[in-house]
Amino acid sequence: MKVRVHVSLKNGVLDPQGRAIHHALEGLGFSGVNDVRAGRLIELDVDDSVTDEALDEMCRKLLANMVIENYRIEKVAA
């Protein structure tokens, strides 16, 4: 089973990388971009026996830092 974990910064946490990307887009002449937030995509290939609880625990224990980040688990059809 393929699983995608989307890790993003929580609302209210300043995102210096997103801000730099925003500046760069403006520098390239793209207008109308109101905000940019950068995140991280982690793809896992796991056995079908891996439970949702186990995936959740992987995210909380390692893949995301719950002080500053949220995560979303997406299961991808093979």
């Binding site: 300043l14 210096p16 002080v67």
Partner: peptide, 15 residues
């Protein structure tokens, strides 16, 4: 990261 201290260290604001 180990939870011994609160908070987190993020990328410097200046990058």
């Amino acid at each position: 990261e180990a939870g011994l201290l609160p908070g987190a260290l993020m990328r410097n604001a200046s990058q």
